[in-house]
Amino acid sequence: MSANSTSRRAPLLALYAVFVFAFIYSPIVVLVLYSFNRDGVGGFPPRHFTLNWYTQLFADSSIWDSVLNSLMVAAGSVALSLTLGLLAALALDRADFPGKALFRRLVLLPLILPGIITGLSLLMFAVFAGVQLRLLTVFWGHGTALISVATTELFAGLQKLDRAQEEASLDLGATPWQTFWRITLPNLKLSLIAAALLIFTLSMDEIAVTFFLIGRDNTLPLEIWARLRLGITPEINAISTLIFAVSVALIVIWYRLRARSLGDRSQEFLEQLGETS
């Protein structure tokens, strides 16, 4: 209803929106188109369709090594940051302790901290501790930097949880431990999956922190970056197109899950709005 009246009143706004979206998305469209262009990155507009660059890409073992590295780091980061993030979120949601405000800020700080700072400080720590740089240090960097993302997501999930359910569980004779596994965690399932997807995506394309902590093995973004120094190749366009496709898929799944986890409550909220108005 309100959307209708807005578009009627402001036709310029629609035009403006088209320009903004064109500005944001046309580079990506060009990138995708060129990944199918026989003439490579030269020659506009693209004239001949080809899958050659993809064939070349699939034969390129160093790219796939870096993809595997990235997947391992991302999976590890998800596990680490979800575990620690869940504990931090539980503390923020339930516990009352001196210094809680400070704790909250410290946990959430990495969210706003520039990656360069996080990366540099972790590098200095690694050097100081005499740890050799390799994939493990990258995993360690991502995992710690992304705890704050996990904490935020899971804290929001815990806040939405109906505490009466946990009381009901205790009331029925379940210990706090049983209650956590049988009631709290299942109710947090959607938040956990959403957080995992988000963290996975963020870890997959992380550069700043990775750059400081990487050893001999490259992650995918660093491999791409290294190759770019030798000039843009259509192969890079092809792998970027694939990354884009996977990211979009993950974001769509994440969004759907989030909408579903909010679904029941937003419905209730809407009904309440209807009653009061």
Binding site: A164, Q165, D171
Partner: peptide, 13 residues
């Protein structure tokens, strides 16, 4: 002691 809660607090899952 067992309780019947005001909004039932049934386990949705």
């Amino acid at each position: 002691v067992n309780t019947v809660f005001q909004n039932y607090a049934l386990f949705p899952h």
